[in-house]
Structure formats: C-alpha cells, structure tokens
Amino acid sequence: MKILVLAEINNGELAEDQTSKTVSAAATLGKVDVLCASNQCSDASTNIAKMENVENVLVLEDELFAQGLAESYSETLIDTISSYTHVFAPSSSFGKNVLPRIGGMLDVMVISDVSKVISEDTFERPVYAGNAIQTVQSIDKVKLISVRTSNYSAVPLTGSANIKKIDCKSNNTLTTFIENKMQTSDRPELTSAKVVVSGGRGVGSKENFEIIEGLADKLGAAVGASRAAVDSGFAPNDWQVGQTGKVVAPDLYVAVGISGAIQHLAGMKDSKVIVAINKDEEAPIFQVADFGLVDDLFKAVPEIEKKV
C-alpha cells in the first residue's frame, strides 16, 4: 500500500482544515505522502510536514496550479500519482473538480464523498442526499477517494515529514483563469466552525439576514443558509448547507426559519446539537432538532442575541 493525499492549496494558501482531515481519513490505512501543487508552497508544505502520519511532502511549485484547474494535471504528473495505490483528496470544490478527471485519465472509478474508510478497498458513502449509506468495494488498481471531511477530526501537529521538491512538466492549453470573486469574512469557515447559525426562507430578505449574522457574530459562529434562502438571493451561494452545498457537523447548529427539507438535513444532520427556531410547529426541522422553539424569528432571534 502506498498512500497519497492531494493537499488543497488555493493560490498559495493551504486549506488546512480540509487537508488535515483528509490526511486523518487516509492515515486510517497507514503513513501517507502529501502532494502540494500550487504557485507558492513553502508555507503550506511547512505546515503539512508537521501533520501526524505524513512521511513525505512532495512539492510541485508551478503557477499553473494556483487556481486548481484540473487540466494542469498532466500525464507525467498522473504517472507520479498512479504510482500510489490510494489517492485521497477532500470532497471540496477543489477535490470534486480534480479527482474525477484524474480518474478519467487513469480509467479508474472515483469513490466520492467517502464518510468512512472501512478497509483498503472498502468504503462507506452517502447516496440519495444521505437518505441511504452505501458500502462499496473497489476493484480498481488505484483507489481514488474524496473524503467527506466533516466526518473526520484534524490530525495533531506532532510530525516532522521530509519535504522534497518534485519536477514535472505541466501545461494547460485548455482553460485560462480569469478571476475570483471570493466572499471575505472574519467569521470562521463554514465547514470547520464549531457553531453554525443558518437562515432559511423564513428570514424573508437579504436585509433581514443581518439578524442571522448578528446572532452568529455574538456566538463566534459561521453563517449558513438553506437552498431556498440562497435561491431567493438572501444569502451568497457559498453559504448553502445541504446535499449540493456544504456538509457541516458543528458542535452546535442553530436553524432559523428553516423548514428542514431532506436536502438541507443531508448537510447538517451530523451536527452534535441542533437547535431550531420556526413559527410553524409542524416544520420537519423539529423532527431532527434536539431543542426547538416555536416562535416568530424576528422577535426571538434579537432577544436571544441580547441574552446569550
């Protein structure tokens, strides 16, 4: 067994939580090597070298990898990647973009969104928006696995791996990066936050979403939203929690004005404690909430913000 993890590094910045939890999932099978491919890798590789169970950090510094474009993974790099028996990546927009393309190049099926590594060829993954959990066994020579990172904890920083530069001719004549419009925020990242406050259709408007943001800031929480709220333009797309958005599992999830559609529950039902506030006592969210309050959110949330 030879295990590789693809680190997520966006324009030189390590997505530490995603990468560390992916290492954690991969390390259930043994020691791992980590590939750092980005325009600027020195900070990222130093960080990764400290992660427990990492043996070697392979550094590939090239402008082509700055923005995570999948076409940059050339055939020579694929040769390096396929010398491993297992390749793990986070199931983030980076991993979902790159890993299946590598699968296509190698003629290997990707095992997406793995929630549990059972053995070297057997994995658990949710299907049907988390309404069923499937156990699959892969017969491929290389196992390509994207990890549902909310199911794993970050690894301790007790290691001291070797850092090696690798050389690899890459080229991308197919796609060109134009621009990023990223949400900048001082709040914790949604997928790794300990507390998440989310708003749904019941919040009613983009302006009213400030009520949700106010409570979130008071609790030091990340802000989430249901698909209905994002579709209605109340909240930006990268706040969406659910089957097709982000999957979160914080210690505390506060759902405000969210009815609890199946596809939303798929993204948050592994939270440790769920609190729901909704004026409709029949709302399905109360079926999964540990604590519910049937009340008008416009009255309740500002009062809660004052009192916590």
């Binding site: 057997t122 959990i133 699959v136 999964v288 540990d290 519910g292 009192k307």
Partner: peptide, 28 residues
C-alpha cells in the same frame, strides 16, 4: 465498485420543544 450493502442512515430522535426564549438561550 461493487455495492456490498445499502443501509438507512443513523436516525436522530426528535428532541424537546422548549417553552420560552430563556430556556433556548440556556441550551445555546
């Protein structure tokens, strides 16, 4: 990928409906 088995996810039990905001604040 050979599907070995398909199971229901672990279900969550419905919890407690609280009576007022103060109780909720306490739980938070």
């Amino acid at each position: 990928l050979k599907v070995i088995k398909t199971k229901e996810p672990d279900s969550r039990e419905a919890g407690l409906i609280l009576e007022n905001i103060d109780q909720l604040v306490e739980k938070i």
